[in-house]
Design a protein around this nucleic acid. Structure first.
Lengths: 236, 236
DNA sequence: CATCCGCATACTTTCGAATCTTCCTTACAG
DNA sequence: CTGTAAGGAAGATTCGAAAGTATGCGGATG
C-alpha cells in the first residue's frame, strides 16, 4: 500500500529483517516480541524496533495491546478460513479486471512467468513434503503476474497484501501434502489459457477453485498433525 | 484492520487527533507535516508524532519518503477514480455477502439506521450546498450497517477503510451539487428493500450505481470549480 | 487451605537533544 | 550568462535513559 522507505533508514531496515524472520519461520506465531530481545537481535535501539513493529501491526503480521507489548500474530483455523475467503473474493475480482484490462506486455510477462514455473521442479532437493524455495518463488511470481494487469492500484495492493499473509500460513503448514489426484501444474496451465484467451469469468472461477483447493489442503494437514499454534506454544 | 491501542497511549492520542484534523479539513491535502509544527500543535514529542504518522501512512492518509518527511496525501481526479472503482468492486462484494450472511439482528439494525437516515434533513441549517453533519453521520451509519452482516473480518475492514478514504474527498469536494433528477433517499430505500428481501445481486448492483453516481458528482463539481489540489496549493 | 493485598521485577512507553541527510543559497569559474 | 561546487540552514532520524504500567510472587488473613 505505502511505498515505505525501506533500506535507507534504520527503522526500515529492522522492519525488513523482522518481516523476513516472521515469514521465514524464525519467529514463531504467537511469540511475544520484547524490546530487550529485539534490540539485541537486530542491534538497534528501542525506537527503531518500535517503528518497525507498528508497521507490521498495520500489515497484519504482528498484534499489539496497550502496555502489553507486541507479538507475532497467532495462527488459527478460523483465521485461515477468514483469510482464504477474503482471498477468493478479492483475488478473483482482481484477476477478472486484469484479464479485461491487461495489455500485450502483461500477457507476455504472464507467459514468461508460467514458462519458468512449469520448468521448475516442485520439490527441493531431498525434501519431498514441502515445495522447494525455487518453486515457491516461481509460483508467487506467476500469481503476481496474473494480477498485474489490473490498473487499479488499491485493488492490486490489497490482493498482494492478502497473498503475503497467506504466505505465513504456508510457512507453518505442517504438511503441504499433495492430493494424489491433484494436478497443480494443470490448474496453472488452465489459468494461463483462460487469461490469454481473455475469458475473464472462467479465469476468475479457476482462481477461486485454485485458492480454495490449496487452503483445504492446509487445513487438513494442520488438523491431521499438530496445529501451528500448538507447535508454537511447545517451542516457547 | 488492527485494533490499535488508541486513547490509552500518547502516540494513539496524537494519531486520533491528527486523523480527525485531516478528515475534518483542518489540514490541507498535500500539506507537509513537519515535526516542529506537529509537536507544537499537539503538545507532544517527536517520537509520538512519528508513530502517529507511520500509522496514518499505512492507512493511506499520509505519504512519506525517506528523509523527505511526511505530508497529507494529495488529492487528484485520477486517485478519486481509482478509489471509486475499488469501492464499487469491494463494497458491492461485501454487501452481497452481507445480504447472504446477515441474521435477523443485522436486519433490525439496518432498518433502524435507515429510519434515522430517512428522518434526518439533508441540509444543515443555512448551508444549502453541502450536506449537514447530522445527515452525513446518519448516511455513514446506514452504509456501515449495510456492510455489517458480512462475517469476514478482512473484507469488512478493507471496505470500511476505503470508505474512510472516500470521506477525505467528500470533505474537499467544492460543491456537493445535487443533480435535480437524483433521488438519494429513493436509492437508499431501494438498497434497504433489496437487502431485507435478501436479493443479494440486486443490492450489490444498486450499491455499485449509488457509489458511481456520487463519485460522478464529485468529479464534476471538482472539475467545474477549482480542483482540491489547486486550493491546497493556493492556501499553502 | 483458599483468597486477597502489596511489593518487587520486568517490560513498555515517552522524551528531546545529538547526529545525519537533504535542500537551498550564494559565490566562483568557464 | 550558464553551470558547478561549497557552505549553511532546515528538518528527519536515532538513541537510550527516565518514567509509567502490568505481572507474578510471597506473606498475611479469613
Amino acid at each position: 500500500m505505502a511505498k515505505s522507505d525501506n533500506g535507507t533508514t534504520r527503522a526500515g531496515d529492522v522492519y525488513q529483517r523482522l518481516r523476513a524472520d516472521i515469514l521465514g519461520g524464525r519467529l514463531l506465531p504467537g511469540q511475544r516480541l520484547k524490546f530487550p530481545e529485539l534490540c539485541a537481535r537486530y542491534g538497534t535501539s528501542v525506537g527503531a524496533a518500535r517503528e518497525a513493529l507498528t508497521r507490521l501491526v498495520t500489515e497484519g503480521f504482528v498484534t499489539t495491546q496497550s502496555h502489553h507489548g507486541y507479538a507475532v500474530v497467532p495462527l488459527s483455523h478460523e483465521d485461515l478460513a477468514d483469510l482464504t475467503f477474503a482471498r477468493t473474493e478479492i483475488e478473483s475480482s482482481v484477476l477478472r479486471l486484469s484479464v479485461l484490462d491487461g495489455d500485450m506486455n502483461w500477457e507476455a510477462q504472464l507467459v514468461a512467468a508460467h514458462h519458468v514455473l512449469e520448468r521448475t521442479p516442485f520439490h527441493g532437493p531431498g525434501d519431498t513434503d514441502h515445495p522447494g524455495d525455487a518453486w515457491a518463488a516461481a509460483h508467487k511470481a506467476f500469481h503476481l503476474a496474473l494480477l498485474d494487469g489490473c490498473r487499479n492500484r488499491r485493488l492490486t495492493a490489497t490482493a498482494r497484501a492478502l497473498r503475503e499473509e497467506a504466505a505465513l500460513y504456508l510457512q507453518w503448514s505442517v504438511s503441504f501434502g499433495r492430493e494424489p489426484d491433484r494436478d497443480i501444474a494443470g490448474e496453472h496451465r488452465a489459468l494461463l489459457d483462460a487469461a490469454v484467451r481473455r475469458d475473464a469469468d472462467l479465469a476468475a472461477r479457476l482462481l477461486r477453485e485454485h485458492i480454495a483447493h490449496t487452503a483445504r489442503l492446509l487445513i487438513r494437514g494442520a488438523t491431521a498433525e499438530h496445529s501451528p499454534a500448538d507447535r508454537a506454544a511447545a517451542a516457547t
